[in-house]
Design a protein around this nucleic acid. Structure first.
Length: 593
RNA sequence: GCGCCGGUAGCUCAGCUGGAUAGAGCACCAGACUUCGAAUCUGGGGGUCAGGGGUUCGAAUCCCUUCCGGCGCGCCA
């Protein structure tokens, strides 16, 4: 029996093979849809090692009773060399108990694969573009940006690990009115750097001190020359320079979080030069999807300067949107939406047929039109999945942290990372489903307790490493270097792992590839975080059982064979914890004293 | 008014894309260190899965509806 990394996938194949055999025998009709058949760990361990719903899902189409069909499956599966026992239970579940050796082989395969354990090729090298952060280049990153940054980064890791060809991308909004405001704000700091007294920063400009260095740089570079020019001349220069400096700052902030993009894509590049936005609009126009028309006034909050006028509209309703959307502002320039369409078209033209955008909750209302636009502009050949990350509520000891955007007083990403550490920020951001609001308590995340899952999981890893350090007294040959150690431990007699707690740990380890796959397919990295927490929990449990029952300890002085087998188990745990944490971008320390 | 996202134990949240008796942590109560790291572990109580209908062998999960909370609703990004 070939050692495989994913025992659940193996068993799924075998169940499907059984189904096909039953089709051949006429028990199931030809062409039966097998896509709903799953093999999963049962909720209750007394039901066996794995369960499949095959009989229940296929019963209707076959015109048979689920339990009868289950018996037919059972007949096939009993002959399988991985299977020790098959039971039909409940409404038609097929419960499988595997031969012990199957689990031991799975553990051995995990150890052998090392940091590649859990890796797969389900992505088939398909190109995927993950766009995340894309914060406006008008200032440093604040806490609100953290979650999307960490989420997008972990998701990209996950997709790369499962065989996708991933590109991490950041869209720089350097073409709108905001960067003109940035330029004017920087210009004020420039005059200040030249010795002028500027006083209070006027309303409508960015007040933050972070623009002072920009002003000083401009003064060094241009001297007084900019001051003598009209705004129409200095603005583009100052804007370019300011955006570049803001992006450097943002890149540094991201680096502090261990987030690294491969592509920084400029919105301005779509508007200037080849005018890709204009071309895109022309293309849509010739396809009959652009027209001049009027829109009904928006409901709800009254719009002050509403004016019923004709404008250039994109017929997004043809592609699933609620209303058609304007492409041009009243001054003739492109709307943000227009540039964004061209941007997504650029992704498609660069070969990405799968795109994932990570947005903040306040952009939720924008999803439909963007998906409609992608459909229109790619002829339905590309898929856009938009992941919305919900708000982060920043607390300290249960009390909300006050922030005032108006006064430029916001907590920066950098401050939070400096205070609680990169690992804590990353793990906590991922220890919640992306579309649920997240409470982030600065006081709690530095607590070192079970209440703080970051330390709990990291401690599991450190504890495993600690066992290896201690074990060298019993097993002097045990290599310290992880890879040689893994090679050494693979040769252990794993059949010595007979304790129920040990077997449960093995089963948990064997689930890792399945969890990785599910997390990647659903674009939900939080599943990795929760799985790691559970694995650490079972590991801590097995450890503590040894304090009460010395014969259950991992290191047994008088039995080096048993010790080697148990260390192999620890190796499996440590491997999975390290790999899983790496996917989340969190460190796996060898010790935490 | 419309759209999107949420509503699961006192609190914070999972629930593997429709499966078996709905699970963790915190808090509370009672326990476990002369011994591989107690930053750990074991046990206990605690539920109308917001309410109501429907779909089917089977629903916290899918559909409809009501209620509550968040976000959004030309020419901001």
């Amino acid at each position: 029996m070939a050692a495989s990394q994913n025992l659940f996938a193996d068993m799924q194949k075998r169940v499907l093979a059984a189904a096909n055999a039953l089709i051949g025998e006429g028990v199931l009709p030809a062409g039966t849809d097998l896509s709903r058949v799953v093999v999963e760990p049962p909720k209750d361990a007394t039901h066996g090692d794995m369960a499949t719903n095959a009989a229940m899902v296929l019963a209707k189409e076959a015109g048979r009773k689920p339990r009868d069909l289950a018996e037919a499956f059972a007949g096939k599966l009993r002959a399988d060399d991985l299977v020790a026992r098959v039971d039909v239970a409940g409404p038609g579940f097929i419960n499988l108990t595997l031969r012990p050796a199957a689990w031991l082989d799975a553990l051995r395969a995990a150890i052998a694969a090392g940091e590649r354990y859990g890796h797969s090729d389900i992505g088939k090298a398909e190109k995927v573009n993950v766009e995340y952060v894309s914060a406006n280049p008008t200032g440093p990153m604040h806490v609100g940006h953290c979650r999307g940054a960490v989420f997008g980064d972990a998701l990209a890791n996950l997709l790369a690990f499962t065989g996708y060809d991933v590109t991490r991308e950041y869209y720089i909004n350097d073409a709108g009115a905001q960067v003109d405001v940035l330029a004017r704000s920087a210009f004020l700091r420039y005059r200040e750097a030249l010795g002028e007294t500027v006083g209070a920063i006027p309303d409508g400009l960015y007040p933050g001190d972070y623009l002072k260095p920009v002003g000083e740089a401009l003064a060094r570079e241009y001297g007084r020359s900019l001051n003598e020019k009209p705004e129409s001349e200095w603005l583009p220069l100052v804007r370019t320079r300011s955006v570049a400096m803001m992006m450097n700052m943002i890149r540094d902030d991201l680096a502090a979080l261990n987030v690294n993009h491969e592509v920084f894509f400029s919105e301005r590049s779509l508007v200037e030069g080849d005018d890709l936005v204009g071309r895109m609009i022309a293309q849509l126009r010739s396809a009959g999807e652009v027209y001049e028309g009027r829109l009904p006034p928006p409901k709800g909050a009254p719009v002050e300067d509403w004016e019923d006028r004709e404008q250039t509209l994109f017929r997004t309703t043809d592609f699933g949107d609620d209303v058609d959307r304007p492409l041009l502002k009243s001054d003739g320039s492109y709307t943000y939406f227009a540039s964004d369409i061209a941007y997504h078209k650029s992704k498609f033209d660069r070969g990405f047929h799968t795109m994932i955008d990570v947005w903040g909750a306040d952009h939720g209302g924008y999803i439909k039109r963007m998906q409609a636009a992608v459909k229109a502009v790619t002829g339905g050949k590309a898929a856009l999945d938009v992941k919305v990350v919900q708000l982060v509520k920043l607390l300290r000891g249960g009390e909300p942290v006050k922030m005032s955007k108006r006064a430029g007083e916001f907590v920066t990403l950098r401050e939070v990372v400096d205070e609680v550490g990169r690992d804590a920020v990353r793990f906590m951001m991922l220890f919640r489903k992306n579309d649920a609001v997240l409470d982030f308590d600065l006081a709690k995340v530095i607590e070192q307790s079970r209440d703080n899952p970051v330390f709990y999981v990291q401690y599991g890893h450190a504890r495993g490493c600690s066992i290896f350090r201690m074990a060298r007294e019993t097993l002097p040959d045990l290599p310290a270097e992880p890879q040689s150690r893994a090679a050494f431990l693979q040769r252990a007699d794993l059949a010595r792992l007979a304790d129920e707690g040990e077997r449960a740990l093995i089963r948990k380890i064997a689930q890792f590839p399945r969890v990785v796959e599910a997390a990647a397919l659903s674009h939900e990295p939080h599943r990795i975080a929760f799985y790691l927490y559970e694995l650490a929990s079972e590991f801590h449990g097995q450890w503590t059982r040894g304090t009460g029952s010395p014969h259950l300890r991992f290191i047994i002085q008088e039995d080096s064979q048993l010790t080697a087998a148990r260390l192999a188990l620890v190796q499996g745990v440590v491997t999975v914890l390290a790999t899983g944490l790496a996917l989340l971008g969190v460190a796996a320390p060898d010790e935490m004293r």
